[in-house]
Design a protein around this nucleic acid. Structure first.
Lengths: 106, 106
DNA sequence: AGTATATAAAACCTTTTGGTTTCATGTCAA
DNA sequence: TTGACATGAAACCAAAAGGTTTTATATACT
């Protein structure tokens, strides 16, 4: 059996809007579960499950620190998103154009 | 109610591996449902449902042509994927670098 | 007209998803 | 050591997802 037997992949992990929001939160800085929960209208248990899915996809990892569990982001697997859409928007020039557009006025 | 009341968004649409494969198929050329189905180990009905989800996300559209319904790809909504991961891998230079790397030797 | 083809629509089924509540456990602080 | 706090784990639940089969309808062919 594969060593990287993931129950959830990146595509599935980001399918849920709550999980996408969690990722954005963790992009700022690492956070304990309860603090993450405070940003959402649902229970801590629900958020913990979402974090499990994200961890399955290796998008986050948690370390226990005292009585709380602190989660941090690992954006690397998101690369797969780029590889995916570049199969469709492979036009390299359009990417350059986008970069330039979004850098002017910055 | 919103004019763009989508039941499914892009993130949800690409969460399923079958649907991702369907998109790849349609990237080559437009195809009727039965032909798409021939690439998968499931019923035509199942594929038709997947196509419905993709159409909800405005990633494909189908036009009836004679007795068959021909589907074509619309990659535009995939842009949202890029906007998403760039929140995390926002490093514009890495994109430029990638473009350059993939243009040399072409 | 009659048959074969391509799809549509509906009913049904099982598993997964996304949430809840409840109870147990470990840790910090007084 | 006694609470209060943070999490973990389990049982439970409704709705959505991803399939199937069956029945109907439209189009094409001969």
């Amino acid at each position: 059996m594969s060593q990287t037997a993931q129950k959830h992949d990146v595509f599935q992990a980001i399918a849920d809007p709550t999980r996408r929001e969690v990722l954005k939160l963790l992009a700022e800085k690492e956070l304990p579960i309860s603090e993450i929960t405070s940003h959402f209208p649902m229970s801590r248990t629900a958020i913990a499950k979402h974090l499990k899915v994200l961890a399955d996809a290796e998008l986050v990892s948690g370390r226990k620190q005292g009585r709380e569990k602190v989660y941090r982001l690992h954006p690397e697997p998101l690369m797969e998103l780029r590889r995916f859409y570049e199969q469709f928007w492979s036009n390299k020039l359009s990417i350059l154009k986008y970069v330039v557009e979004n850098d002017e006025g910055k």
